[in-house]
Design a protein around this nucleic acid. Structure first.
Lengths: 214, 214
DNA sequence: TGTACATCAGTGAACGCGCGTTCACTGATGTAC
DNA sequence: TGTACATCAGTGAACGCGCGTTCACTGATGTAC
C-alpha cells in the first residue's frame, strides 16, 4: 500500500489541515489522534509515518492555523477599501467559514497554548508577530495600537464565547468595537492634526443596552 | 472513619480550593481527580462522597476562583488611593500569590471555559458580571470601559504568556497598560470637561522598545 | 447519661474506556541492474 | 525497456497507562431509646 511521494506529501498536509481545524474547534487535549486521522480518511496507525508525536502535529497545526488567519486578513484587506475597524464584523463572522478571527489559534486555543510545548509556542509567536504587523499595516496607527487592539479582540471574543447570555456576549463585542474604532479615529486625527469627536460607529448587530448585572 | 459534619464541610471546601488552584495552573483537562484529592491530602476514592462528577467540581472551582479574584481586587482597591490603572502592576504580579489577574479563571482557563458545560459557564458569567462591576466602580469611567479594559487585559496576559520571547511579552503588557491609562485619562477629562494630553504613565517594567518583527 | 445501632466520610482495589504509541504485516512505488 | 528487489505509506491489532467512576469495606459519628 505504499503511496507515491506526491500522494504522501498531500496526505501529510491534509492531516495538518484537519488537525488545525479540530484543535481550534474542540481544544488540543480533547482532540485525539484517532479522531484526526479518521477525519482525514485514514486509520490511526499510519500517524507515526508522518509525525514523531502528537506535540509535533500540534506545533505544525498551530503554524498552519496562523497562516490561514493571516491569509484571511490579507484577503479582506485587499477585497475592498476601508480601515481595519470597518472590517471588524467580517473578521468576527463565524458563518464565513473557519478563517474568522474566532478560529485564529491564538484566540481559539489561547489558554491551552500557554501550557503548550516550546515548538508550538514558537509557531504561535511567529504567527503573532506577522498578525500584528498585518494589522498595523492595515490601519493608520502603529504597531503598539495593533498589539493593543489584538489583545482586546482576543479577550472580547473569548469572553463573549464563555458567557451564557447572548445579550451580554453581544455587548462585549459592541463595547470593544466602539472603543477600538475611537482608538483608530484618534490615530487618524493625530495624523491629520485634529482632536477626535467621540462620535463612533456602533452599527454592530444594532444598539445593545448594557445587560451587565441584570 | 466517618468525620464530623464540620470536618466534612471543611474537607469539601478544601477540595474545591485545591481544585481551583490546580485547574488554573494546569488547565481543566490536564488536571485529574486523583491529583486534586492527593493535593488535598485524601485518596481519590472519597471524591464522590462530595461531588457528583468532575464537571460539578469544575463549576464550583470556577465560582470560587472568581470569588478570590474579586476579593483581591477589592483588597487592592481598599488598601490605597489611586485609580484602577495605577494598580495595574499589582494586579498582574504573579509573585504576589495566586490571586493576581493572571490566575483569574477567565484568564487562566479562557479557551477551556468556552467549551465547558453550562453550569461552569454560568459560574464564570456571574463572576464576570461582578468583576466588570468592580472595575467600573474603581474607575471614573463606566461599565463599557470596564468591559473593554478587561477584554484587553485578558488578551494581553494570555498573549504575553504564550509568546516565547520575554521582551515581546513585556511589550504586550506595556502597550496595553499605556492605552488603558489613556482611556482612563480621557474618561477623567470628559468628566472634567477637558481634552486628554496624551502624556501617559509607562513606568511598567521600564521603557521597552518594540521587539515585534525582530 | 448510657447503650445499641444506623449513617456515612474516607480507603484502596477494581472497572471500562480512550488515550498516545508500537508493531507485524500488506502491497504499490521507486530504484538498481 | 524489463525485471528483481528494497522501500515505506497505510492497516489494524495490541501495548501500557491514566482517566473518571464504582464498590465493598472500615470505623468514628451522631441518633434513638
Amino acid at each position: 500500500m505504499k503511496k507515491s511521494k506526491a500522494e504522501t506529501a498531500e496526505t501529510r498536509k491534509r492531516i495538518v489541515r484537519v488537525a488545525a481545524q479540530a484543535f481550534r474547534s474542540n481544544g488540543i487535549h480533547a482532540t485525539g489522534i484517532a479522531e484526526i486521522m479518521s477525519a482525514a480518511g485514514l486509520t490511526h496507525g499510519g500517524f507515526y509515518r508522518h509525525f514523531a508525536s502528537k506535540e509535533q502535529l500540534v506545533a505544525e497545526a498551530c503554524a498552519v492555523g496562523m497562516e490561514s488567519t493571516l491569509d484571511m486578513l490579507g484577503a479582506v484587506a485587499r477585497s475592498g477599501e476601508g480601515s481595519f475597524i470597518e472590517h471588524f464584523e467580517t473578521y468576527l463572522l463565524e458563518e464565513n467559514g473557519d478563517d474568522c478571527l474566532a478560529k485564529c489559534p491564538l484566540v481559539a486555543m489561547g489558554s491551552e497554548l500557554v501550557r503548550a510545548d516550546l515548538e508550538t509556542r514558537r509557531a504561535a509567536t511567529n504567527g503573532y508577530r506577522e498578525l500584528v504587523g498585518a494589522l498595523a499595516r492595515e490601519s493608520t496607527s502603529g504597531e503598539g495600537d495593533a498589539v493593543f487592539a489584538f489583545s482586546a479582540i482576543l479577550g472580547a471574543i473569548t469572553l463573549s464565547q464563555i458567557v451564557d447570555d447572548p445579550e451580554l456576549a453581544k455587548s462585549i463585542l459592541v463595547e470593544t468595537k466602539q472603543r477600538l474604532a475611537r482608538l483608530w479615529q484618534k490615530a487618524s486625527a493625530i495624523n491629520s492634526g485634529e482632536c477626535g469627536s467621540g462620535d463612533e460607529n456602533d452599527a454592530f448587530i444594532g444598539k445593545v443596552p448594557s445587560p451587565i448585572g441584570s
